[in-house]
Design a protein around this nucleic acid. Structure first.
Lengths: 124, 124
DNA sequence: TAACTGTTATATAATCAATGTAACAGTGAG
DNA sequence: CTCACTGTTACATTGATTATATAACAGTTA
């Protein structure tokens, strides 16, 4: 598994870790029941505090993506793809609602938005 | 002009003010060259610090939406609709790019996104 | 037992948003 | 000119969030 973080990003490190792990699950880099690196190992690799990694793991566990067993480690929870897919669909829905609100405020036509949509999605 | 702010929102107050004023400009509530409430007046109305209002005004000025003259007050700059329309189009483009990235990560089909898009935009 | 795991508590630092207060300067009506 | 309004600036402070360092504690397993 390969995680790249940036401390110059405006996205908090613990959130970057969460996103990277979710992406690894989706792309199959991490399989069900597979062990994650220990909080200290990952912290050393990324040259950050283990508390920051722990926070990421804690939140991922709360959200149901991983399971942590004290003394043993953290593991990818089963049925993860569906979970993340649901979550990402919800994110997309929120983003489209934002677009809708902006278009109402700025008097932008639906057609114009569809064109932008096409341009971005058609680039391979 | 009517501005409603929420301090329980995760959007900073100064940004809520900026958004509210941009919306007021777009909907024609605020016309070109019209005076904005003074920083202290608006601060009193909203029961917040005048420094928070000043910050909103300062950024709006930097972005070219208003003009502030020391001793006189702040005024809506001309050619605002076009400015905001450009800005909002850019925001929408960024949001669609976010959607694109999420769809790639979570293996969500373009068709599925279009359906969500239709549902949200068709509600009158 | 030793070397891993995760957990917890405490303290600290940096940044950002927001505030309070005070003093200063420009504008314009009376 | 004076007064009451405008904006400006400089401090100090609070609270929340992010991230860190350190230390001690507890479960797992070879």
């Amino acid at each position: 598994m390969n995680i790249i973080i940036s401390n110059s990003s405006d996205i908090p490190i613990f959130k970057q870790i969460k996103n990277a792990l979710k992406e690894a699950i989706c792309t199959g880099v991490l399989q069900e029941n597979e062990a994650l690196p220990s909080v200290r190992t990952l912290a050393n690799d990324l040259k950050i505090s283990f508390l920051t990694v722990k926070r990421a793991y804690d939140e991922l566990e709360t959200e149901g993506f991983i399971k942590t067993i004290p003394g043993k480690g953290s593991f990818i929870a089963p049925r993860n793809m569906e979970l993340i897919r649901e979550e990402k669909l919800k994110e997309i829905q929120d983003l489209i609602e934002q677009i809708y609100k902006i278009s109402k405020i700025a008097n932008i036509e639906e057609q114009e938005i569809k064109e932008i949509f096409q341009i971005i999605f058609e680039e391979e």
